[in-house]
């Protein structure tokens, strides 16, 4: 008796149409004259915020003015020199303890102007739940990691790996979590972070 795998593959092989070519992903894609303005404007439109900064001090100064940061007691920063970290992932027994975490501060590699997304991997994050459990998410991205669109993002993106060669997790995250499941009314802060901010660091 052939396995399900064999049966499915046999059926697919018998039924698939004659091969068509793989198309080139080529075209005249949108470009922005003011790419930083586009990125920050887009973030604003989805209830987030983007800042172009020159130093870590500037990030700290901006954070100090955010109400969410001012009232925060549990902060986990994975960006050296940014924020006053009071929660250390190594000291937690499991990811569940990140519940009620006020602020997570993480690095991202890329930012995408067309949709406000940042590419974050968990290669350097012990518990990736951090990205989704925190009430507020702060992201620091090198300013030269800002690309206009997703094609450029995938051109630059390398799938993250841990030191031992295992594949890591990566996500494009655009703004805070949200839902419109009740009568199409947009509610920001569904199940993940209630707010987010992105710093483009020059």
């Amino acid at each position: 008796m052939p396995t399900s795998r064999e049966q499915i593959l046999t059926a697919v092989r018998a039924n698939q149409p004659p091969a068509t070519p793989v198309p080139q992903v080529k075209g005249t894609w949108i470009e922005y004259d003011d790419i930083v303005g586009q990125f920050c404007g887009l973030l604003k439109s989805i209830g987030s915020a983007g800042y172009l900064v020159d130093s870590l001090d500037q990030i700290n100064a901006t954070l100090a003015e955010l109400p969410a940061y001012q009232s925060a007691t549990r902060i986990c920063s994975l960006v050296p020199g940014v924020g006053d970290s009071s929660v250390h992932l190594d000291s937690l027994a499991r990811a569940h303890e990140l519940d009620q975490l006020d602020i997570a501060i993480v690095n991202a590699e890329l930012a995408v102007a067309e949709n406000g997304a940042v590419w974050i991997s968990d290669a350097a994050i012990k518990y990736r739940a951090l990205l989704f459990m925190a009430e507020h998410l702060i992201v620091v991205v090198p300013a030269n990691g800002l690309v206009p669109h997703m094609h450029a993002a995938y051109d630059r993106l390398r799938l993250p790996e841990f030191a031992d060669g295992r594949k890591a997790f990566g996500a494009f995250i655009s703004g805070p979590s949200k839902t419109a499941d009740i009568e199409q009314s947009l509610v920001i802060g569904a199940q993940g972070p209630r707010s987010s901010a992105v710093f483009l660091l020059r």
């Binding site: 989805i46 799938l159 890591a168």
Partner: peptide, 12 residues
């Protein structure tokens, strides 16, 4: 929307 909030890539 220009993209969903989360586009998560699971590889392992």
């Amino acid at each position: 929307q220009p993209i969903t909030t989360y586009s998560s890539h699971f590889h392992a």
